[in-house]
Design a protein around this nucleic acid. Structure first.
Lengths: 232, 232
DNA sequence: CTTTCTACCCTGATATATCAAATATTGAAA
DNA sequence: TTTCAATATTTGATATATCAGGGTAGAAAG
């Protein structure tokens, strides 16, 4: 980290703060303030924000300002479409290429994940335990992507995942209990050696919960205009 | 165009030159030379190159140089994996959402495209006619994406398409004749209202020809190191 | 003639300065 | 008190300057 470029450091830092919720949706990001806070000139900051904008985490308008992106219903819908496309592909390739030991690992992880979710049913909404479950869940999905043996696919999924996925964690997820064996069933479908099963299993998995998220987005009242009121 | 930012102009210009082959694979891109040629400082150039790097069209190493990206076999393989993921998703959604008039349009385009390919069988490798066929082919695929009614999906496919797709045009494509009714069959599968048919049809379509491309890449002897010999 | 090493040059990275556009603020006029 | 226009401020965009890392050519040594 210390050896990487300033732009890289800024990117990592800002992204982390957005994902952790330290910077909330709609928050204004002043390049100069950030530069001062991160102790660098605002050029590396600009580069970092350009990358984040390309990834869809922030949005900016020329000579007006930059803010953490406010996702629309269409954004979330689109995100799920892409996720479904990429993750079903990962499931297919994983199904074809997975080794015996990886298969064992995946099945075990799925079982563990289901147990975690069952245990977390009684937890409070913002407990650290829930966050760890969430992290584990993400890792489970990335594991499937890795077993597909397509580095680029892993990268694409990673990029899509964090966009809305992490955001929905804060707003709605875990509201409804998951079906029993939710992840175990998926893992078994993937390990079945049958492409159709793997494909259908993942498709169902991704689509689950989409409606809830859509509803919560609709209820969320956010400033859609560009009134970037200064924060002092 | 004249009203857009310098960075945007640079991006469009450089990208165009890469896609048109004016800048060949492996060519060195000097930010300062580009800045002078495009009549701007090298900051907008830097921003443009960063975007192109994120999209995978160029690659750069700190304090060494930037060049038009040299795709590896793995790159091409990965590109096809992503394309298959995104385009089958487009085919599925298109299958579900297409209107009667759009269906008619799609079927007609497919027929026309098949005719074009049949007519182009006797053309020379680098004829302008072949390029127009290629362009029409691309438009056919984007039409399917549009009919899926997911703007983001269109955008993602657009981004993936140009990367390698256009490149392979120059190196190998059209070497082998396409099966008769290649595109008409795809269009019919998509218009069948049956998801499985649409999915399978597109999957087959995308995979066709992958092997040829892979072979031609293997034979291509390019400098893989970073010997960025100056061009005067 | 070949190998080694050093000085020079080019590269991307970063800092600082300036600009024009758009917003926010203020204060005078109604 | 309200309206509105002039001004101050902030923003992203761009230009220019400087820096340190790495490559290259050519001198020096074998």
């Amino acid at each position: 980290m210390a050896g990487s470029s300033l732009a890289q450091q800024a990117y990592t830092q800002i992204r982390e703060e957005i994902l952790r919720g330290k910077l909330a949706v709609g928050d204004v990001l002043s390049r100069r303030k950030l530069a001062e806070r991160l102790n660098m000139s605002f050029l590396p900051i600009t580069e970092a924000l350009q990358r984040l904008e390309a990834e869809g985490l922030v949005e900016s308008r020329p000579r007006i300002g930059t803010r953490v992106r406010i996702p629309t219903q269409q954004d979330v819908l689109d995100s799920y479409v892409i996720r479904e496309a990429l993750e079903t592909q990962a499931a297919r390739l994983c199904c074809s290429n997975i080794t015996a030991s990886e298969r064992e690992h995946l099945l075990k992880s799925a079982k563990h994940l289901d147990d975690l979710y069952r245990a977390s049913a009684t937890e409070l909404e913002d407990s650290p335990f829930l966050f760890s479950v969430h992290t584990y869940h993400l890792r489970f999905h990335m594991k499937i992507a890795e077993f597909s043996r397509s580095p680029r696919l892993v990268q694409s999924i990673e990029c899509e995942q964090v966009l809305i996925y992490n955001w929905l964690y804060d707003t709605v997820s875990h509201r409804k209990a998951l079906p029993s064996g939710f992840h175990s069933n998926l893992a078994q479908a993937i390990c079945s050696r049958k492409l159709q099963l793997a494909d259908a299993g993942m498709r169902k998995h991704v689509r689950f919960g989409l409606e809830d998220v859509m509803k919560s987005i609709a209820n969320m009242e956010v400033e859609k205009g560009w009134r970037l009121r200064r924060v002092d």
